[in-house]
Structures are given as structure tokens and as C-alpha cells.
Design a protein around this nucleic acid. Structure first.
Length: 410
RNA sequence: GGGGAGGUUCCCGAGUGGCCAAAGGGGGCAGACUGUAAAUCUGUUGCGAUACGCUUCGGAGGUUCGAAUCCUCCCCUCCCCA
């Protein structure tokens, strides 16, 4: 292994964009020891495989892990296939339904593939916590649960809120932090990363490691990325997430849809501008001299470039302008082939059948509100039809951004 | 185990026999405007081809011409006491 950078240089990089390091001097000590013994630190981060796709919020974490890798450390990427079944209560206001093992495994596999878009596959160890959690006996679980008290558990802010608000909290949820902490024991983690909402869970890990006679992990929390609504934490279940596998145009548009005042945070957490460019942008945003859409475009293009390759952002921007600024149509529209129909095809029914609207009632509403166009002509009559003769082709537009070509064939 | 309060549409929350497909807010969707899928404003928001019908207010029965509303049983949640 090549020699590592000195402690102060490593720290300067690692501290960037970080909310808290607990305790900080302990990390410095660990780094010094790592350099001295030429042993990389074991950096843990766990992800519950509760949804199939990684999104930009995960990437904030992954980037920090990547930094650790680049500094010569070992990343332990833990897939919480066991804990996903419990459901992390962090920040939640309600008990989460338990996932089945099959769902979790499917998600885990999909994670594994996506993670390598950001992390270096050579310096990563992928682990599943079912490996040690599943074989635990009821005695082991009792043992584990005896290591933490109820009082300390309900100190936790989200439990506190739910308790005071008369909301149910199931016992199973108390177990979550314990299992997460137990993972750290099993993995002998030196450092564990997580979002600021993970602070409690991460600290439980320290406690359990101490009891197990290990040197407790250093806890590093990163700010949470707000979703496209600009308020809630990005999460798939809230529908405010941007998946890292989404197509460029979708990604660009979604970034453009974040509220203006969330821009600075997004630049900080998801753009890959160098420090000088970043500082400049933040200054500009604060000065409010420039039209915010200029910055937002830059952000959106930058994000697209990161996940789809340089230049893709610019292309997505052109397409975006064409559709939203000029009200035009995209270059490429998906085409669906339908069987020839004898009778004229009722548009309301067609929209529902093609899933362009969830129901006929909704399709009717869309037409009444002027949200549907066929071949560029706005449809205003709910009983309107089109002819489904052989070879005829129509371009449907629903709302501002949903396009579909249909073609009738014998 | 005893006592009390509750479970309403995607979410929060009003509604105590017909005027209830159910107020209001949030969210979503659409339109207008614009600087963007920001912000703002307007409309809309169970299903079915309009009138009309159908399904919905924790679940199952019942009373009634008529039930989210009344009765019975059951399930679930919260609070207090043990």
C-alpha cells in the first residue's frame, strides 16, 4: 500500500461538507495510527435495502466514502438486508411496514450494481447483516437488548415526539438501533458514516462496541439532502427523490423543479464543482444579482453530467428549453403500437388504457382542464374520438411533459 | 385486569340519522403567468360514458323508508390506574 497523506491533510479533506465528527480528536488519533502501522481504517456505512434504487441523497454519503477510499482506507459497505425488515424508525412518524426477505434481496442486488458508479470496487467490502443477525438465538437477542435502557431509548427525538403525540411505537423499533450498533461490533468499524438523522443509531454503535471491548467507532454525520420539494429529506417513499439511474431529461427537469431556496444546499451536497467555482456560485446566489434559473440550470447540467457523462447535461438542457420554455415537443417520443380499431377510438378511454391517466374520470378531468393534446391540437371535448385505421399515427400530449406516440396497425 | 378517549377519503382533520362522495388544510394533478417542472394565482382531486348509478368513513352483523352518524359483537391505537 502506498503511503498515506499526513493527518492534517486527510482531515482537511474529510471534514469538508461534514456536519459533525464525534469525537474529532479521536479520528485524528486513529488516522495517525493508521499511517504509522500502514493499516487502513475500516469505514462503515449501512444502507437498508428498502427501495430498489439509489438516489442523490445516498450519493452524498457515497461521495464521502469515496474520499476515504481515495485516502487509502477500506470501505465496508453494509447492506441492511436484515434491518430493512424492521424498518429504521429514524425521522419517521409512523411504524414502517416490514418488508419481505425476497423484496429486500432483490433491492440489495440492485444496490450493489449502482454503488459501483461512485465507489472504487477494489477498496470495498460488501457485507449483509443477515449473515450475523439471522443466526442469533432468542438468548442472543435478549443479551443484546439488555445492553441499553428504555430511558436512553426514549431520549431520542423522534421517539419522544411520537410518544408525546400519542403515536404508537412498536417494541420492534427499539431493536433497530441495537441491531445497527451490533453490526459495528461484528464489523469492527473504526468510523461509521451516516446522515444527521442517524446520529442516535451511530452512537449506540459506540456504546455496544465499548461493551464488547472494542475501540468505539468514530461517528461522522453528513447533512441531509432535501428532496425536490426542498423541505423533506430525499426519499423514494415521499416521491421527492431523483434516482441515479433516471434518464438525463428526467434528471434535469427534476433538479429544475427544486425551490430556489434549496439551491445552495444542493450545490453544496450534490454538485462536483471545485472549491473556487463553488464559492463563486454561492456568493452569486446570496447576492441575488443573477436570475436564479441560471444557477439552477448549471446545477442541473452538472448533476446530469456526473451520472450520464460530460456533455449530457448540456443536451438535456437543450431538450428542456425546447419543451418547457418554447412549449415544443421532444425529439424522441416513445411509440406504442395498437391494433386497428373498427370503431372510432374514444380518447378518454385510450388515455386510461395507456396509463397516461390513472382512471377514466381523471382522463376526463385532464381534457376538461385543457391538459390533453392530440397532434398538437388541444382536445376540449370529453367525448372526442380518433380514427384507429391501419397505419394512422398520433402524438398524444398529456400535461406539459408527457408525450406518447401511438400507431394503429393491422 | 379496571376506567377513559379514539379509528373518516393520499395525509392531517371536520362531520352525531336524510341537504354527505363527505367542510377546511396539506400534498397531487391541470391551466394561466413566468425566470424553470421555482414562486404566485385559478381550477381540480373515489369509480363508472352526461342526467343518473355504483363503491367508500376500522371489520362483521342489525335497527330504519334512509346510517360515517343509532344498536350488538369483534379488531386496532392512545391515556390513566393496577
Amino acid at each position: 500500500m502506498s503511503s498515506m497523506l499526513p493527518v492534517d491533510q486527510q482531515m482537511r479533506l474529510l471534514e469538508r461538507g461534514v456536519e459533525e465528527i464525534l469525537p474529532k480528536d479521536e479520528l485524528e488519533t486513529k488516522l495517525a495510527k493508521a499511517i504509522e502501522t500502514q493499516t487502513p481504517l475500516r469505514i462503515k456505512e449501512g444502507f437498508d435495502a428498502s427501495a430498489p434504487d439509489l438516489h442523490l441523497g445516498h450519493c452524498v454519503q457515497l461521495r464521502k466514502l469515496r474520499q476515504f477510499q481515495d485516502l487509502g482506507h477500506q470501505v465496508l459497505f453494509l447492506i441492511g438486508d436484515f434491518t430493512a425488515m424492521i424498518g429504521d424508525p429514524s425521522g419517521k412518524s409512523a411504524t414502517r411496514p416490514m418488508l419481505t426477505r425476497e423484496q429486500v434481496l432483490e433491492n440489495a442486488e440492485s444496490y450493489r450494481k449502482q454503488v459501483f458508479k461512485v465507489l472504487d470496487p477494489d477498496k470495498i467490502e460488501v457485507l449483509f447483516n443477515s449473515e450475523w443477525c439471522l443466526p442469533m438465538t432468542s438468548v442472543d437477542v435478549l443479551q443484546l437488548s439488555s445492553q441499553y435502557t428504555v430511558a436512553r431509548m426514549i431520549e431520542r427525538d423522534d421517539f419522544q415526539k411520537r410518544y408525546r403525540g400519542g403515536q404508537p411505537i412498536s417494541l420492534q423499533e427499539f431493536l433497530y438501533p441495537l441491531f445497527q450498533g451490533y453490526d459495528s461490533v461484528q464489523m469492527k468499524a473504526d468510523v461509521e458514516l451516516g446522515g444527521t438523522d442517524q446520529k442516535f443509531n451511530l452512537l449506540v454503535g459506540r456504546e455496544l462496541q465499548r461493551v464488547a471491548g472494542q475501540r468505539p467507532q468514530t461517528v461522522m454525520t453528513l447533512p441531509l439532502l432535501p428532496g425536490t420539494d426542498g423541505v423533506e429529506k430525499m426519499s423514494k417513499s415521499l416521491g421527492n427523490a431523483i434516482g441515479i439511474t433516471e434518464p438525463p431529461s428526467e434528471m434535469f427537469g427534476k433538479v429544475m423543479s427544486i425551490p430556489d431556496d434549496a439551491m445552495a444546499r444542493w450545490f453544496e451536497l450534490v454538485s462536483d464543482l471545485d472549491t473556487a467555482a463553488y464559492d463563486q456560485v454561492i456568493q452569486d446566489i446570496e447576492a441575488q444579482q443573477t436570475n436564479p434559473s441560471v444557477h439552477k440550470r448549471r446545477l442541473a447540467a452538472n448533476v446530469v453530467d456526473q451520472f450520464h457523462g460530460p456533455g449530457e447535461g448540456a443536451k438535456a438542457e437543450v431538450a428542456f428549453d425546447k419543451i418547457f420554455v418554447k412549449g415544443g415537443e421532444p425529439d424522441e417520443v416513445e411509440c406504442q403500437v395498437l391494433p386497428v380499431a373498427e370503431e372510432p377510438v374514444w380518447i378518454v378511454g385510450l388515455l386510461a388504457d395507456l396509463k397516461l391517466a390513472p382512471s377514466r374520470g381523471e382522463a376526463r378531468r385532464l381534457i376538461q382542464q385543457g391538459g390533453v393534446a392530440v397532434e398538437g391540437e388541444r382536445v376540449t371535448d370529453v367525448s372526442a374520438t380518433i380514427a384507429g385505421v391501419d397505419g394512422s399515427r398520433y402524438r398524444l400530449k398529456v400535461g406539459k411533459r408527457r408525450f406518447l406516440d401511438i400507431e394503429f396497425r393491422a
